[in-house]
């Protein structure tokens, strides 16, 4: 049980694919201009990650070591194709707005990284859990970054959520404030880099504070001094 818990902690915080491993930056930076896009890509990545982790884990004993990477990539590509066709069928608007970044999930290092580092060495149940947690960790960072950029850039949240969730979701759109001028940099790629940098900095601050709380600073021991003056 504790193994599941530690996997959860690793995926969501300690070894977060986006904030710590810095994997999969290409989609992370490219599609997080709105929460909807981020959510869509986060879910797609999560599905692919869980599917590929389970499959890799199931076939791990039959795959020769020498050709394991091509095999893993084929498995991942199969799942990406499934997700792509599903999105094309059910969330066509989002499919169009994510564009090339859906097929590019194949090259997301976070997925091949988990297949190689975890799923190829562990049983399917653990691998599935690892996939869920890593995928969730990635998706949460995507969504937070998307929210930051959408609020700063356009002053809205869940703009275009109906593309992902269907027509009812237009009520989700929240207009926090309106600008006469959009703060374009938040929506353009530089805003993604700045935002991700700030998120990583924020995580580091929290980590240092947790560490400082856990172990109070040890007072440096004073060097012993022998008195050598005024000796009578």
């Amino acid at each position: 049980m504790s193994q599941f818990k530690s996997l959860m902690k690793e995926g969501m915080w300690g070894n977060n694919p986006a904030l710590v491993q810095l994997l999969g930056l290409c989609p992370l930076l490219a599609v997080t201009s709105t929460v909807t896009n981020a959510l869509g890509l986060g879910l797609a990545t999560l599905l692919v990650l869980v599917g590929s982790n389970i499959t890799v884990s199931v076939v791990r004993n039959w795959v020769p070591k020498d050709i394991r990477i091509p095999v893993f990539v084929m498995i991942i590509a199969a799942f990406v194709t499934i997700v792509q066709l599903l999105m094309n069928a059910y969330t066509f608007g989002l499919y169009q707005s994510l564009g090339i970044f859906i097929p590019l999930i194949v090259t997301n290092c976070a997925i091949i990284g988990r297949a190689e580092a975890f799923a190829s060495k562990n049983n399917p149940l653990l691998s599935a859990w690892d996939g869920v947690m890593m995928g969730l960790g990635f998706a949460v960072v995507l969504i937070v970054l998307g929210a930051m950029r959408e609020i700063i850039g356009q002053g809205t949240l869940f703009d275009g959520a109906d593309l992902l969730l269907g027509a009812w979701a237009t009520v989700l759109r929240i207009e926090l404030f309106t600008f006469d001028n959009q703060f374009l940099v938040a929506i353009l790629p530089p805003g993604a880099f700045l935002g991700l940098g700030l998120l990583i900095a924020g995580k580091n601050v929290i980590d240092t504070q947790i560490k400082a709380k856990a172990s109070p600073v040890a007072q440096p021991e004073k060097a012993p001094r022998a008195r050598v003056t005024n000796l009578t």
């Binding site: 001028n181 703060f183 374009l184 940099v185 353009l188 530089p190």
Partner: peptide, 8 residues
Amino acid sequence: LLLISFPV
């Protein structure tokens, strides 16, 4: 930053 954010 300003030039790409507020071109007008």
